[in-house]
Design a protein around this nucleic acid. Sequence first.
DNA 1: ATAGTAATAAAACGAACGTTCAATTAATTC
DNA 2: GAATTAATTGAACGTTCGTTTTATTACTAT
Lengths: 215, 215
Amino acid sequence: MARTTGSDGEKTEAAVREAAVSLVARLGYEAMSMRQLAAEVGVQAAALYRYFPTKEDLLFTLMREHMEGLLKAWDATRPASADPVTRLAAYVENHIAFHIMRRHATHVSNMELRSLSHERLTQILKMRTAYEKELRMILRDGAEAGVFEIDDTGLTAMALIQMMTGVIVWFRPGERLSVAEVTASYLSMTMRLVGATISHGTARPSGRARDAVAL
Amino acid sequence: MARTTGSDGEKTEAAVREAAVSLVARLGYEAMSMRQLAAEVGVQAAALYRYFPTKEDLLFTLMREHMEGLLKAWDATRPASADPVTRLAAYVENHIAFHIMRRHATHVSNMELRSLSHERLTQILKMRTAYEKELRMILRDGAEAGVFEIDDTGLTAMALIQMMTGVIVWFRPGERLSVAEVTASYLSMTMRLVGATISHGTARPSGRARDAVAL
DNA sequence: ATAGTAATAAAACGAACGTTCAATTAATTC
DNA sequence: GAATTAATTGAACGTTCGTTTTATTACTAT
């Protein structure tokens, strides 16, 4: 046999991407074989090489697009306001929403970095650093404005990101808590953690967001 | 050749364990080959099988001993006091100290769970859950006593653990911050996060621990 | 000394891996 | 409808993998 009826390059490539994210997240990059991936897509292993020259190229593509998506999502959400509390709230909400929505891809981007070549690792880390810098800037502005009480901006940013990203480890949609409830809780914890002292009139009407500020 | 002069089973096994933790942490379990591990120890691959029947047995041993060590460390540190603030402070300090000290082993225990058989995975997760339960109990007691302000005990426990464990991702001993400084900062952030309202007289004299309570 | 055990080397096994190549068929273009 | 291009198969390549087997040497107890 050869070309199959109804075959379409674009559709196949999309199916490969999708299956790869799921498989790598579940099994790990090294543990997933190209034959396994091909079987999941319903194709022979050789067909994958029409779309991705090597296995590592495939991994890198998944990671790069995930990071680009994260940066793009933040760019679209980023509030014009200069109020650090509002900005921090937006950052937290965007981060949690994005990571819950793309749990598998986040897992891949966080866990499989060691499988990238040095050059590509650098590329991904650059994007990650840019994203983290956004949070550090918010924290610094808030600290300087006196609305946050923060020991060490860099350390606090890392702590917050680890805490928020950790959501994907235990959160499962449709269980005890809704996304909105989780987000509200994390918002509340974040605001306490940074010692936010003034209430921001622009408080979201989402659930128990009142906690997000006061303490 | 065969048995080498000066060879000693106990020493070899210890060397294998040590090298394995380091290699699995750096390369990942799947990416590390038994030949690579053997070379690191200075032995032939076949020699490894005298100490660990399979590669997975080796991984499981590393993980089980790490988790046992964590539980044991907490058991030795756990304060007799019933004061939730004191207990929480002890938990945080123990957790951070242990995880920084055993960065590589923690990496292994957190990242390679998917390479375990179902049965062994369950065993490790049971230990992990027991450890997390300790934190949940502290949080619950504190919330009931009115010294903590907590939305959801389970969610807060997960958030705290993710935050604290995240230390191993970015912290490198001998860089900008000392272990004591990092611990003090995390203690401070933790106490704010849970809304600890009363000062605990037993405050450590370690650095800026004054922040650990007040807000 | 000698017998027995502990610790390893050396070589080999079959299976699985990522990848390549030639052949073949489906769709598209002219 | 012929020529071209797109998409895929099936088989194969050389490597590497985890593991087993066998032989050999170092140590220990008698």
